[in-house]
C-alpha cells in the first residue's frame, strides 16, 4: 500500500508539471502579444521585454485611424456577418431538427440520412461553383452570401437534434396542440425556450467559426470597406511588413483575437460543456 500511494504521488506530480507546461505554451504567445501591443516600435526594435510599456492607447489609436487597414470597420463587418450567421444558423437548425424529430412523414428517413451524409463535407470543394453562382446573382463583394448559407448547417442541426432527443417530451407538443396552439407557434413559443441552452452554445460556436472564417470571405469580398477581420490580417501579412510600425501590427492582431478571448473567458463553462454534447455519439 505504501509503495502504491508513493507511485500515485509521483504520477500526480508529473501530471501537474506537464499540465503547467502545456498551459504555459498555450498562454505564452498571447502574453507576448499583449505585452508587445503596449510597446512602441522603437521599444520593440530594442528586443524582448516581459514588462508591458505605456503605448497601448497610442498603438490602438494608430490602428483605429489607419485608412490602409480599416480595422474598426473590419470588426464592424465581422460582427454583422458573424452575428447574422449565428442567428440564422441556430434558428433554422433548431427548426430543421424539430421537423425531423417531431413529425412523421414519408421522406423523413431520407432527409435525415442526407443531412448526416453531408455532416462533415468541407465547403471548399464547392467554392468554385459558389463563387460563380453569387457573381451571377449579383452578390459578389457583398456580405449577404457570407450570412445566408449558414441556414443549412448540418453539424449544428445534429447538435440540436441530439438535444431535442434528450430534452423535449413529445407530450408537451401534444399538450400545446390540444390547447389550440398552431404548429409554428408551438415551435417558437414552447420549443425554442426549452432549447435555450443548446441555442446559446451553438450561437457561440457559430459566431466564433464565422468570425475566424477566412477562405470564403477572402474570395467573395473585394472592396476594402467590406473586408472582415481575417482578410485585413491577411492583407497585413502581404503588406510591406518590414517597414511597418510593429506596435501597430501587434495591436491589430490583438484586436482580432482579444474580443473572442474575453467572450470565451466569460462563458468558458458552458462552452466547454458544449464541445462534447453534439460532437460525438456516446
Amino acid at each position: 500500500m505504501e509503495k502504491g500511494s508513493k507511485a500515485l504521488k509521483i504520477r500526480s506530480i508529473i501530471a501537474h508539471v506537464v499540465l503547467v507546461i502545456l498551459s504555459f505554451m498555450c498562454l505564452f504567445f498571447f502574453y507576448i502579444l499583449l505585452i508587445n501591443a503596449t510597446r512602441s516600435h522603437a521599444e520593440l526594435q530594442r528586443g524582448f521585454s516581459i514588462i508591458p510599456s505605456t503605448h497601448f492607447i497610442e498603438n490602438f489609436m494608430n490602428v483605429a485611424n489607419d485608412g490602409t487597414f480599416p480595422m474598426i470597420r473590419g470588426v464592424f463587418n465581422s460582427i454583422i456577418v458573424s452575428g447574422g450567421s449565428a442567428a440564422l444558423c441556430i434558428y433554422f437548425s433548431a427548426l430543421t431538427a424539430y421537423a425531423l424529430y417531431v413529425y412523421d412523414f414519408k421522406l423523413k428517413k431520407v432527409a435525415f440520412t442526407f443531412i448526416m451524409a453531408i455532416l462533415v463535407m468541407p465547403t471548399q470543394v464547392t467554392a468554385l461553383g459558389f463563387l460563380r453562382l453569387i457573381t451571377n446573382m449579383g452578390l459578389y463583394d457583398s456580405l449577404i452570401p457570407l450570412i445566408i448559407p449558414s441556414i443549412a448547417s448540418p453539424a449544428v442541426f445534429y447538435f440540436m437534434y441530439s438535444y431535442l432527443q434528450s430534452s423535449l417530451p413529445l407530450s408537451l407538443v401534444e399538450a400545446a396542440r390540444i390547447d389550440g396552439s398552431g404548429e409554428f407557434r408551438t415551435f417558437n413559443t414552447i420549443v425554442l425556450p426549452i432549447m435555450k441552452p443548446a441555442l446559446a452554445v451553438q450561437a457561440i460556436f457559430t459566431f466564433v467559426g464565422s468570425w475566424n472564417n477566412y477562405f470564403v470571405p477572402a474570395l467573395v469580398l473585394e472592396t476594402k470597406s467590406k473586408f472582415t477581420v481575417p482578410i485585413l490580417i491577411a492583407t497585413l501579412r502581404g503588406a510591406d511588413y518590414m517597414n511597418m510600425d510593429m506596435g501597430k501590427v501587434y495591436m491589430m492582431i490583438a484586436v482580432a483575437i482579444v474580443p473572442i478571448i474575453i467572450v470565451y473567458l466569460v462563458l468558458s463553462k458552458s462552452i466547454i460543456a458544449g464541445i462534447t454534447l453534439g460532437g460525438v455519439k456516446e
Binding site: F92, T96, L107, A111, L133, A152, F184
Partner: peptide, 27 residues
C-alpha cells in the same frame, strides 16, 4: 401534420440546394 414536417424543412433544403448543390454541379 406531415405537411408541417415538410414546411419546416424547406429553409434548410432550399438553402442547401442553392448554395451547395448548384455550386457542386457547376463545379
Amino acid at each position: 401534420r406531415a405537411k408541417w414536417g415538410y414546411i419546416f424543412l424547406i429553409p434548410f433544403f432550399l438553402t442547401y440546394f442553392i448554395f451547395s448543390f448548384i455550386p457542386l454541379v457547376d463545379t
